[in-house]
Amino acid sequence: MAWKSLLAVMAAITLAACDVSAPSAPLTVEPIGTVPRASAQNFAQVVRIVEPVAERECRARTSGVNCDFKVLVDDRPGQPPNAFQTLDRSGRPIIAFTQALIDDARNVDELAFVMGHEAAHHIAGHIPRQQQNAVAGAVIGGLGAVLLGGNAEAVQNAQRQGARINARAFSKEFELEADALGTVITARAGFDPLRGAEFFNRIPDPGDRFLGTHPPNAQRIDIVRRTAAGL
């Protein structure tokens, strides 16, 4: 019973991991040029310039990966400034911006850096790597519960906890990787990654919390500076 439970949870994690960044409601998007805000022109310019650069970097750095990025605007009301990368059912990479982030950006460099950062998550394979980490954590947690003589419910709880902890364990590393590669994409698209990364000075600093999903803002700015200096 315990082993069947373990396999079931592993399968569920495998299926769910690709949607780890997916929104809870369907995204809707208007043609980029018709986003109903004064900032639409800046956003359209950034998408038009950065997207082909991100696709070139993707094809140069990966093999057998879908590099056809699709950029969407998450126009659900009440969404905070945010952007995320996910995959659709066919495996096509999606980069989504909330309208609040588009409006909050102070310049095109910030928008370009955010887009480069999200594209970098896909190029670096962070969704499948997070999936693998979650499955490994579920296996370890489940085995521990089995060895301790736990019942099916205890095994399932241990698997979920193990998957959650192991999936988050490398999230800070993934963010720094995306910041570094995002810096390269931003610069090669003709924007200023240092100016773009200044938005870190305006958002709350997550500090260095245990199992936090994002590294401290100062560390992120430092990786951008060092990466840009090497270009």
Rank of each mutant, 00 (worst) to 15 (best):
H214E: 02
L194R: 10
A40R: 15
F84K: 06
A229W: 00
A60I: 00
T186Y: 03
Q131R: 14
F69W: 06
L72G: 12
F43T: 09
A119L: 09
A124R: 13
I49N: 15
A189V: 05
R164H: 06
R129G: 00
D104V: 09
V139C: 00
N133P: 02
L15R: 12
V139R: 02
E175H: 08
P80N: 04
S90Q: 13
V224K: 01
V73E: 08
T186E: 03
A120N: 04
L27F: 15
V9F: 11
V47N: 11
N133T: 07
A96T: 00
G196Y: 04
A163T: 01
A2S: 07
L147Q: 07
R202I: 08
D208P: 02
R129V: 02
F97T: 04
G125Y: 03
E51V: 14
N66E: 11
V65A: 10
H214T: 03
V114L: 03
R226C: 00
N201M: 09
C18K: 06
R59N: 07
L176Q: 14
D208F: 15
P23V: 11
F210W: 09
I185Y: 13
A83N: 04
A229S: 08
I95V: 14
I165C: 03
Q219G: 12
S24M: 11
T86I: 12
H121V: 01
D205M: 13
A25M: 13
D75Q: 07
A8T: 02
K70D: 08
V73N: 10
A54L: 05
E198I: 09
H117N: 01
Q132K: 09
V29A: 15
P23G: 13
Q132A: 14
R202H: 14
A100S: 11
F210T: 04
H122E: 01
S24V: 06
Q156K: 13
H122C: 01
E30T: 14
N151K: 10
A119Y: 08
N217D: 06
E177R: 03
P206W: 01
P26C: 13
T227D: 00
I49F: 09
R48W: 04
R89C: 10
F200Y: 15
W3T: 11
R56F: 04
V139L: 15
I185V: 10
G149D: 08
F200I: 09
I221E: 03
F43E: 09
A163S: 10
L7F: 14
R164L: 13
C18W: 12
Q79V: 09
